[in-house]
Design a protein around this nucleic acid. Structure first.
Lengths: 349, 349
DNA sequence: TTGAAAGCGCTAACAC
DNA sequence: GTGTTAGCGCTTTCAA
């Protein structure tokens, strides 16, 4: 039943036409369900297609029709479990709709990012889903403004007419901080990514609001909004934990958690006795380490799915040119890493 | 300096030719560094390209030249940190060589895998890097045999004329098991993926050899070679740890580690007092959990890099039709999860 | 409805 | 060396 007359030479629409005794145009019409085709002819064509094992050549289709059925996906780092989850979320949505994915890693490098985007465009992708390295950057804005390919931004926001899918980092951070504040902590540290992305800025805002809403001073000396890497988390935690008036609690982004834990061990501190910990973004590590870490969880797969659906809508001409901005909410997972402050840390003055 | 005469309508090779006062062919030759072009003409063409901001259309190039400069990458699951690392390893190698990546997830589903592969082929990818779901499957073998696109297999092996890049799971598992045996353990459990992949089979072999090389009986009742998921790890560990003659040590694949730890906690066991643990494949979790887990580490990024280079070689006509089979070796990271057996487990008879 | 023909943007074979 | 020409495989007018 399969590959009945499988010939090794590529069979083209021409062969089908000849085989069915119709013209090229008719075959094309059958293929694209466009225009009305007589039932009898349609049957003949479909038979010929089956008999010859014909498969349309997407490259030729793309050249002629100016659309490729390819979506470009650009992420800072697929190794990050969160972005990996997002890709896993968006992939089946796009695939089911008949799209294939170009995937590239920018490694948060603007140059690379710019190159990839141009590459995508030249290759005539129908749409792009991107998480830019810096959504505050003028060059990025300029490139995206003139991009002229349907585009959905993930976890970034930019003053441009594009769709955005965001996780609610403001709410999450606010809630985590208020929780700690409610436990009696005042010296709370924040360790997060730089403020050059929506997530970075929103976490900062959420953290600060939690204090100011209560009429409290924000402990600015304990805010570390810098590197993205594991060592940064360690160093930031370390410096928050030593000195005159150390932090009794820390809110750290998921990517920094491992570093924070390292610092905690280095200082021989115990969680939650000496230090309470909440992580922004739930990970396997947070769930399984002892004690398990209380976490704000975001559903990244849903974010990816949402971005894909938005793009598909856009491609179908759905929302016209109305810009959508969707926010995915969080879940608060209380585990065992938080307690009221009080226990003196070993080395406290 | 940028985009001097940036016209919004796409500028084609024709425009360049007219602008430079040469023929299409000459422009093409300049573009492809093919054939000799007079220095003066070349300069004129290059100037025209710059002036017009011309960029070749890869779709047209692809249609005509029958090569796309796209590589298809198919993995069972990009969310798995190991495959994510592999992708991160192979990506820059391919990108630097001017290739763009199609990436797809098979979710270890044969049907999906087959579709993706055909999709890749129809889209005229120049090559494929794939980690098939089951390298023991006849349909898979048949598809790959007739595939007629340069292909490199990752972490799978198949009786076919294709390049393979493998991690040495035999050696790794052997070493882990011997280590435990050396500590005095005899009731050692193995928890791993099904034997439908190279990794699964090699681990089994390595485990068994470690026993038989010492003239010992293989504790077959403690071998769990089944599911791929976290719950499987938990259940397998649980059943190894209860009963008359429970395991005193377990060798578990990285993906199962979380499940094993869950079971250990459920049973209120302590590592390494009641149970020694080695993981096949190092993860963040293994490194940071308390106690840190002794691990066989494989460099997956290197594996990816290697696969990419192999494919590139192949595309360049490098190795001709000689099948390469490269094995990436392991590293043994001794941490704190192993001790001599002896401590009676709480519920032991 | 259907067929014929033009051409998407490019490469490669062939003349000159 | 360089220009001319014929397609790659398809979609899409335009007539019929």
């Amino acid at each position: 039943m399969k590959k009945p007359t499988a010939r090794s030479a590529t069979v083209t629409i021409k062969h089908v036409a000849r085989h069915a005794g119709v013209s090229l145009g008719t075959v094309s019409r059958v293929l694209n369900r466009a225009g009305n085709v007589d039932a009898a002819l349609r049957r003949r064509v479909e038979e010929a297609i089956l008999n010859l094992g014909y498969e349309p050549n997407p490259v030729a289709q793309s050249l002629r029709s100016r659309q490729s059925r390819v979506i470009g996906v650009l992420m800072p780092d697929i190794q990050n479990p969160l972005t990996a989850a997002a890709v896993t979320g968006l992939e089946p949505v796009l695939t089911r709709a008949g799209y294939t994915l170009f995937l590239a890693n920018s490694h948060s490098d603007r140059e690379r990012e710019s190159d990839v985007l141009e590459q995508f465009k030249r290759r005539r992708v129908d749409g792009v889903i991107v998480m830019v390295a810096n959504d505050n950057d003028e060059a990025t804005r300029a490139q995206l403004r003139d991009f002229s390919v349907p585009l959905v931004m993930m976890e970034r926001v930019i003053d441009l007419d594009v769709d955005c899918v965001l996780t609610n980092q403001y709410d999450g951070t606010y809630r985590a901080t208020r929780y700690l504040l409610g436990l009696g902590h005042r010296r709370i540290g924040l360790i997060t990514v730089p403020a050059i992305t929506h997530s970075g800025r929103e976490r900062l805002r959420g953290f600060e609001s939690a204090f100011t809403d209560l009429g409290l001073d924000v402990p600015r000396d304990l805010i570390h909004s810098g590197g993205r890497q594991h060592p940064y988390g360690r160093d930031a935690a370390y410096s928050s934990l030593i000195g005159r008036d150390p932090a009794t609690a820390i809110v750290a982004s998921g990517g920094h958690l491992a570093g924070v834990i390292e610092a905690v061990r280095l200082l021989n501190l115990s969680v939650p006795r000496h230090l309470s910990l909440v992580t922004l973004g739930d990970t396997e590590l947070a769930a399984l380490i002892e004690p398990p870490i209380t976490a704000i969880r975001y559903d990244w797969a849903a974010t990816g799915r949402c971005a894909a659906e938005l793009l598909l809508d856009h491609l179908a001409g759905g929302h016209g040119s109305t810009r959508q901005r969707i926010t995915v909410t969080h879940e608060f997972i209380i585990r065992g890493s938080c307690a009221a402050p009080g226990a003196k840390t070993p080395r406290a003055g």
